[in-house]
Nucleic acid binder design. Sequence first.
DNA 1: TACTTTCGTGTAATCGATTACATAAAACTT
DNA 2: AAGTTTTATGTAATCGATTACACGAAAGTA
Lengths: 342, 342
Amino acid sequence: MSEKVTIYDIAEKLNITAATVSRALNNNPKIKEATRELVIKTAAAMNYKQNKLALALKSGRSNNIGVIVPRIDSNFFASVIRGIEEELYPHGYQVIICQTHESIKRENENLHTLVDAQVDGIMMSVTGISDENDSAFRNVLEKNVPLIFFDRSKHIDGVSSVTINDFKGGYLATKHLIDEGCRNIAHFSGDQSLDIFKNRFLGYKQALLDNGLPFNEEYVIFTKSSVDAGKDAVDKLLQLQTPPDAIFSSSDFAALGAIQELKERNISIPSEFCVAGFSNEPFTKFMELSITSVDQSPLEMGRMSARVFLEQVDKTDTIKIEKKVVLAPELHIRKSSTRTNF
Amino acid sequence: MSEKVTIYDIAEKLNITAATVSRALNNNPKIKEATRELVIKTAAAMNYKQNKLALALKSGRSNNIGVIVPRIDSNFFASVIRGIEEELYPHGYQVIICQTHESIKRENENLHTLVDAQVDGIMMSVTGISDENDSAFRNVLEKNVPLIFFDRSKHIDGVSSVTINDFKGGYLATKHLIDEGCRNIAHFSGDQSLDIFKNRFLGYKQALLDNGLPFNEEYVIFTKSSVDAGKDAVDKLLQLQTPPDAIFSSSDFAALGAIQELKERNISIPSEFCVAGFSNEPFTKFMELSITSVDQSPLEMGRMSARVFLEQVDKTDTIKIEKKVVLAPELHIRKSSTRTNF
DNA sequence: TACTTTCGTGTAATCGATTACATAAAACTT
DNA sequence: AAGTTTTATGTAATCGATTACACGAAAGTA
């Protein structure tokens, strides 16, 4: 009962060859209509299921694509993956998930594993910039596996990417804080070897300069993306001679930590201090004191990455297209930065 | 440069056969040490990578496992998947993600697709109970693909599951509300054809009875797991002759909606009204008015599911073991239900 | 009727690995 | 030195599908 049925079993039963069965099932026009119907009926009766592995080996296409992210249990990455899966599902691709846990070594391993598993493409958000794993990337490209970066990308010739305009995101958030009357705006940044953090920072800086505010190096703090890191950063900022009156944080979690710490110190938000985050994590909207944040449209980012992959995979033989899609960030203004009584 | 290197290429270069190359690379003891070293060195020099598809076809094991969830962008499911991936990674398995979007038809398709893709096992959280897709499940079992349910499970002979004790979770939360002085406790339930909702409800009911409180059918509202559904439900409850003074919600989102609606009506929490949710979504902890919730230890659930799979996959030839792992829920008591001034 | 197309299937190679069986060479007996 | 065992490797089948090529039969043409 549980034996796997192959085209040979069907062939034997009908006294024909496996080749004919294969052709019949694939709607090859050379097969007589009567034969085709008989084969299809018999296949159904025997509960035949095509072995995708055999097909994959023969065709060289596994119909699997790999997705590498730092971790999956973050709303942003989960949403991107959701977008990828939704877009690829109708095309018959399966999505394989890998997590790096922010380790370059792991990223390396994942890249190799996916290539070895013969995936038809890889979409990833880079964990960090280092030349430690250049060879892993080179391996992917040499094997002609389409590679697409989303959000956190790396500059590699011939590799497409889907990102948001982080500069603009940083600019918008900072400009908003300025418009709300803040004059000493601090910034929580991340590892600036990653473009996303670099560009948010540059956007922040530009907004200050464009509005006649001085850029103060002391106001830029490098934090991890965590609540505690945000608390610590606020602690540092408040010890400055001129403490800031607002924070634009590259991380919603750090922004939340900042808010918690500020409240702890009885600094009232937004009247005395404004906060804006980045990523539009679900909780920013749910809080009673909802947090202003820059949305990165992760679902759209995932969908778009998948679409870029599909374009790429079709024109395998033509010249490699390097597509850089840049999505527009959207600032969601909420209570943490809205001085209604202004 | 980009050509794929096979064992035949290595064999040709060294004037030996592919069989010898294969044995050398697999540390077969019958191979002369000198030959082994030479093969390994040459393989490395030629940048040989084993084609996992060929291996999979030959061995009948793809080293892929499939995970089916309603959606991936929910902290609970994402965390379970994280647990699964982490536990399986050292064993060389890759994780394929499928989403049903709460559609039985999609669940069906996913099951078939995964089986056709020759996955070595399937872990899933059932989307709904219906006999529409019994055949899909039967197909999985007939093909001897290990199947493991987590969280939302279905009763099928020989299928293992990893769940939490939802009865206890419901009981704990309700008992806690009673202890805080609430006497008219309402309950937001879900589709009770799913055990998880049925059992949380039963736990709720039992806690009432054990504490001498009457069970009131009107206090049980069936809601979707969304903020808006929670608001609507509160609206209904407040129209009752004797409105409740607490809610135990099977969904954190509905609990949040309830809280928002109650605040809107100037009902103060927790002094006048207490709320407890289920799932311990990240935002419940982050809110200023943090929400009491039952934790389901999703990470542990994922890890455990993976472990059950690993046990199962090894003893393929022995009798099928049906393992039912039941994790203990943990109530996280927070502000939404703590009457400090009590 | 003899000759050319067309049609439908069969034969066998192929994808890239593993492995039971066969075998030649080397090593060990006595 | 002849016989036996061990060692290292080659031969060929196999996993389950697809497909170029071959070929007999049927159909069309003159």
